[in-house]
């Protein structure tokens, strides 16, 4: 049994504003409040490539450089992998929701991405990337997400599951096709 996705305007960390008008999140990023894309997918790794391609296609259209586009897609991929592996413990038929908001037109490319699930809840403070000095397999996903995105905030959803809010703005010194400063 899946819980319907809550109305994003009720739950996202943005200041109040009318639907479709720009608003500001806690970190000061302005985006349109109404989601432009919202998909539900099953927690099956088979669909990771499709999710990445969707994110990449949207980011390119928004004007992100190719390197930034690939890094945003990587962050989403890592987040989805974490939900599948750790949240749902490799169950392949559980729901994941991916919701996108573009930034305001005419400004530098910007995107907000929210990933929600119904997996077991954990304290957001416990979600940490591993110490990079400790060279060992595993534990890199959260570090990559936080390194690549401007904002990456975990919180518990109301009722069940976790929510990850990520925001990325194209660095202004990037040139089209050039290297993204995310890394």
């Amino acid at each position: 049994m899946t819980t319907p996705l809550p109305n994003p305007s009720d739950t996202l960390p943005w200041t109040a504003g009318s639907r479709g008008t720009p608003s500001t999140c806690r970190q000061g990023y302005r985006v349109s409040e109404r989601p432009h894309i919202r998909i539900e997918m099953q927690s099956n790794p088979l669909y990771l490539a499709g999710a990445r391609e969707m994110i990449s296609g949207v980011c390119r259209r928004l004007g992100f450089t190719e390197m930034c586009t690939s890094q945003i897609a990587l962050a989403v991929d890592e987040a989805l992998c974490n939900v599948m592996r750790h949240g749902y413990e490799k169950q392949t038929d559980r729901p994941i929701w991916v919701t996108l908001w573009p930034g305001p037109q005419g400004a530098r490319p910007e995107i907000k991405i929210v990933i929600e699930d119904e997996a077991k809840q954990i304290e957001p403070d416990e979600i940490k990337g591993r110490d990079l000095e400790d060279v060992r397999p595993g534990g890199l996903g959260v570090h990559i997400i936080r390194e690549v995105m401007d904002v990456a905030e975990y919180e518990k959803r109301q009722g069940s599951g976790m929510k990850l809010t990520m925001v990325k703005k194209q660095p202004d010194h990037d040139k089209p096709g050039g290297e993204c400063s995310c890394s």
Binding site: L74, P137, L140, I144
Partner: peptide, 16 residues
């Protein structure tokens, strides 16, 4: 053409 952290982890394991 693409690798994420599980792929990197296999290489770290191989290196060790």
């Amino acid at each position: 053409d693409y690798m994420n952290s599980p792929g990197v982890a296999t290489l770290v394991e191989a290196l060790q």
